[in-house]
Amino acid sequence: MPKSLSAFVIIGLLFTNCLTIAFFSYKNLSAEPVMQQGETVAKVGDVEITREEWMNRLEQQYGKMTLKDLINDKVIDQLAEEYDIEVDEEEVTRESTYFNTMYGMNPSENFSEDEWKDEIKRVIILEELLTKDVAIPEEDMQRYYEENQHLFTVPDTYHLAHILVKTEEEAKQTIEELEGGSSFAVLAMERSLDEFTSSQGGSLGFVSLKNHTIPTAYEDVLAEMEPETWSDPIKLEKEYAILYLHEKIEGQSWGYEEVKDQIRRKIALEQIETPISASEFWDDLEVEWFYGEQR
């Protein structure tokens, strides 16, 4: 199935920024105490690891990528102001919905809501900058819309998590703890048998019943669930499950006028040979950085 170019760009940025955020997250930095030079950040027996060793290793492994991200963000912000490019919030919501439903990923595991929206906005602005001088005939855009309806329609999609346990008794005990105020994510990490999701608080991401990626037993239960609630124990082949519904995204379709700008950018990007990167504008803004001529 053809995929939205916008989504591919977002995936690229998501991959890069997940690494950055893992080490330099605004939230994590603000939540931790300020460390002093020479401070010990870890100890292995009598061997100390200092803050300098830690930061040097981070800089060696991720410094260039992180600095490039920061520069590209500034480049996009400056050019957006220069060319008076603004992004409609409805388009941001549409891109986010499309990404969640079509790729089944949950950006909130790595981004706050505001950070995720900022990432989408920057992608859209970058596409606008790269294609601002490309004219696409109206009939070409209309034909693309008619021939690619599947790109502008999303099915009902559910953001789910689950906990798998061996027995019905364990499932009932888990539900009692949930009713007592325990965190679903914490319980999933502590006891879920699903090793692929337990470390993520049981998250299954966003799933569509159309794709049949979850057990049929889950599909039957989902019809009766409300967001932010958990299910009764669900009998599977070898285990029992408790399902949690974070949210439901109602299926929808977008009309031509709603996605016209997105289509124009996609066709234009397919026509130009310029790499999809803000570094294409570095020379225009006379960017200088630590790594000299390296891009």
Rank of each mutant, 00 (worst) to 15 (best):
K3A: 10
I11Q: 09
F15L: 04
I21M: 12
A22Y: 14
F24D: 00
Y26E: 14
S30N: 10
V34S: 11
G38V: 08
E39T: 02
A42R: 11
R51M: 12
M55A: 07
R57E: 10
Q60K: 06
M65N: 02
L70C: 13
Y83Q: 15
D88C: 08
T97P: 00
Y98D: 09
F99I: 10
T101I: 06
G104Y: 08
N106G: 14
N106P: 01
S108E: 12
E127V: 02
L129M: 02
V134P: 05
P137I: 09
E139G: 09
M141E: 13
N148I: 04
H150N: 12
H150C: 08
F152E: 09
D156R: 00
Y158M: 03
L160F: 07
E169I: 07
E170K: 09
K172I: 12
Q173L: 10
I175C: 05
G181S: 10
S182Y: 13
S182W: 10
S192A: 03
E195C: 03
E195G: 04
E195Q: 13
F196N: 08
S198D: 03
L204V: 06
S208V: 00
N211M: 07
V221S: 09
V221A: 07
E226S: 14
K235C: 11
K238C: 01
A241F: 01
L243Y: 03
Y244P: 03
L245H: 05
H246R: 12
E247Y: 07
E257K: 15
E258W: 10
K266H: 15
I272G: 10
S277R: 06
L285H: 04
L285Y: 04
E286L: 09
E286S: 14
E286G: 14
E293H: 10
